[in-house]
Design a protein around this nucleic acid. Structure first.
Lengths: 204, 204
DNA sequence: GTCTATACCCGGATAGAC
DNA sequence: GTCTATCCGGGTATAGAC
């Protein structure tokens, strides 16, 4: 009995290793350039063994993307717990952006799946992923709505579009590009992106 | 003699067809998902014939990207010609952005090559592309500098970072995403993106 | 369930006739 | 230079022994 539980735990640990490797490679190279051989090698198992745990490359990637959203949800929880109850929603949004930008700069944040990617279809068909993504959308969307109601964010702009703008800014290639430029620290880059995203390029 | 010139013209026309097909597919599917077979089929020739004109898939894509930058330069010329001499630089930048956003919404603007793409290396090695890209960078950069000097754009932000931000906004996936949302017209979307990019998400 | 070895397919690139 | 037919590497997925 204990032995069976132990073996089940080992299996879960192996699956976790696979997902972690996929998450890493997904962020580093993207879905197309990532190969199943690489994932298996980084997880320390043979490719055929990987296919005992997941049906396809898409399924592995979907599991990894699901875990990415999970870490986002956890980060949102932590931010909400740390903030005092009267922290303005705009500050919460900025804190979430900082968290995502740090991940992006560290090369640990996969890019948004391209509109035509084969990955996108797999994600749309993955119930767990859709579920968690909807949860994250709702959570951040609530802050956006509150910030618009309080007049911090422009209330004339459609909320969903604001959300996508934030996501595109956080997950986009700019942090990496500016980092490659090499003339600024990561903190400077993050503050620049926050400033341009929330306050715009024109002088205030 | 005339016959030789004619045949040379036919060859150039074929090359133009190849490049046009590549440009289209590059914008529609991206470099990785685009296959040489598709390019040849859309150009109306056999794949082997394509390889008489270009050495590799990367070379085809580089030629297509070069032509994209060429059309940008031409558009900048036209905008400069149309504008009155005292048009403020910020207006010129916004007009250029509108032009790029329209192209993006029409699905005719290839995305920026990913940092790890094999395309990026080919582009960096392609003298013609680098040349034209530098020219475009200089032209738009001059407007950015002027707008910062006049106080229209925030002078505290590094100019090159501003430029990349503009490029990322114009070439990013947001126009397509919002278009898929379906609740707004292309003009509304373009104005929304211009507003958020230049004026930010917060209320002014 | 894990491995080695392999089937199978797709896509980039080429051979050789015309 | 253009075509048809082919090669060949690499990548997903599977077979079969253990």
């Amino acid at each position: 009995m204990a032995k069976l539980a132990f073996r089940a735990q080992v299996l879960r640990a192996r699956e976790a290793a696979i997902v972690a490797a996929a998450k890493h490679l997904l962020a580093a190279k993207g879905f197309d350039a990532m190969t199943v051989d690489e994932v298996a090698a980084e997880a320390g198992i043979a490719k055929a063994s990987l296919y005992k745990h997941f049906d396809s490359k898409e399924a592995v990637a979907a599991a990894a993307m699901t875990r990415v959203v999970d870490t986002l949800l956890a980060a949102l929880d932590e931010l909400a717990a740390q903030a005092s109850p009267d922290t303005p929603p705009l500050e919460r949004l900025k804190a979430a952006m900082r968290w995502a930008l740090q991940l992006n700069q560290a090369g640990e944040l996969p890019a948004l799946p391209a509109p035509n990617s084969s990955l996108l279809a797999a994600l749309a068909a993955h119930a767990g992923y859709c579920e968690r993504l909807a949860a994250a959308n709702e959570r951040v969307g609530a802050w956006v709505g509150a910030a618009q109601a309080s007049g911090e964010l422009n209330p004339e702009l459609p909320a969903q579009a604001l959300l996508w703008t934030l996501a595109a800014c956080a997950c986009g290639p700019l942090p990496g590009l500016l980092r490659r430029g090499g003339t600024h620290s990561d903190e400077q880059i993050a503050e620049f992106l926050l400033a341009t995203c929330f306050d715009g390029l024109t002088k205030r």
